Simulated scan of single mutants.
Amino acid sequence: MRATTWAILVCVVATLSPLMAASHANQPGHFGLGGILGEPTGVSAKYTLDRQFAVQGALGLSLVEKGVWLSTDFLIHIHNVFGDGGKLPLYVGGGLVIQDRGDRGKDKVRETSLGIRGVVGVEYLAQDRISIFGEASAQPFLFPSWGLGISVAAGARYWF
């Protein structure tokens, strides 16, 4: 029994070793999952479609509005802006945001708002499987009432 367990373990490690050594951070066809701090604070995910395009999303809490935040963005990467060989791509994009904009106005009415979002950020490809990012965004809310939100956040992702 013990020999069988060791044989299976050796086979699994031998199979996965090349995959674990491969660079995945922000590479086409790979998925990154991690955390984000700021506005919002929660979970962040990103899927890289190709060298230039990606989609990202965040689910968390808005610390300013004291409510739930859900956003998704389509991103365009601009490489070599900082002359770094592509390890620090700039990205711009846009998408949608749904946010519980709690305790608004003198009546302290909570409302869930839908808006569009414009985002600009930079992502540092720290290691083969880890990236660190910072971004700023503006989100005009369109429904059920007009409003404007601005956010700044930073985070990190592990890439699969």
Rank of each mutant, 00 (worst) to 15 (best):
Lys106Asn: 11
Gly121Tyr: 04
Ser113Lys: 09
Leu114Ile: 15
Glu123Asp: 15
Asp128Lys: 13
Ile130Met: 06
Pro140His: 06
Ile130Leu: 15
Ile132Asn: 03
Leu148Ile: 14
Pro144Phe: 07
Arg129Asp: 01
Glu111Asn: 13
Glu135Ser: 14
Thr112Phe: 06
Arg117Ala: 08
Leu125Thr: 01
Lys106Leu: 09
Gly105Ala: 02
Gly115Asp: 02
Gly121Asp: 09
Ile132Ala: 06
Arg104His: 13
Leu125Glu: 02
Glu111His: 15
Arg110Val: 11
Phe141Thr: 10
Gly134Ser: 13
Leu114Gln: 03
Phe143Ile: 13
Ile116Lys: 05
Leu125Asn: 05
Ala153Leu: 05
Trp146Ile: 06
Val120Ser: 13
Gly121Val: 07
Ser131Ala: 09
Ser113Trp: 03
Phe143Pro: 00
Asp128Phe: 00
Ser137Ala: 14
Phe141Val: 08
Val109Pro: 00
Pro140Gln: 07
Val122Met: 15
Phe133Leu: 04
Val152Phe: 15
Ala136Trp: 05
Ala126Glu: 01
Val152Met: 12
Gln139Pro: 00
Pro140Lys: 08
Ala126Pro: 01
Gly134Thr: 15
Ser131Ile: 03
Ile116Phe: 11
Gly134Gln: 07
Glu111Tyr: 13
Gly155Ala: 02
Arg117Leu: 14
Gln127Trp: 12
Lys108Glu: 09
Arg110Lys: 14
Arg129Phe: 00
Gly115Glu: 01
Gly121Lys: 05
Ser151Met: 12
Arg117Cys: 11
Pro140Gly: 10
Ala126Asp: 02
Ser137Lys: 09
Trp146Asp: 11
Leu142Ile: 14
Gly118Asn: 11
Val109Ser: 04
Ala138Thr: 14
Ile116Glu: 07
Gly134Glu: 10
Tyr124Ser: 08
Glu135Met: 11
Gln139Ser: 15
Tyr124Lys: 01
Gly105Trp: 02
Glu111Arg: 15
Gly134Ala: 15
Lys108Ala: 10
Val119Ala: 08
Arg104Asn: 12
Val122His: 09
Phe141Met: 14
Ser145Met: 03
Ser131Trp: 01
Ala156Thr: 10
Gly134Leu: 07
Arg110Ile: 08
Ala153Lys: 05
Gly149Ile: 04
Ser131His: 01
Ser145Asp: 12
Glu123Val: 08
Gly121Pro: 06
Pro144Tyr: 10
Phe143Val: 12
Arg117Phe: 07
Gly118Met: 07
Val120Gly: 14
Ala136Arg: 03
Gln139Lys: 03
Lys108Asp: 13
Arg110Ala: 13
Leu114Asp: 03
Gly147Ser: 12
Glu123Lys: 10
Trp146His: 11
Arg104Val: 13
Val152Glu: 12
Ala136Asn: 04
Ala138Ile: 15
Gly121Leu: 06
Ile132Cys: 03
Arg117His: 10
Ala126Met: 08
Val152Lys: 08
Ser145Ile: 04
Leu148Phe: 13
Ile132His: 02
Gly115Gln: 02
Arg104Lys: 10
Gly105Gln: 03
Gly121Ala: 05
Thr112Glu: 07
Asp107Trp: 03
Ser137Val: 00
Lys108Pro: 00
Gln127Glu: 11
Ile116Gly: 15
Glu135Thr: 09
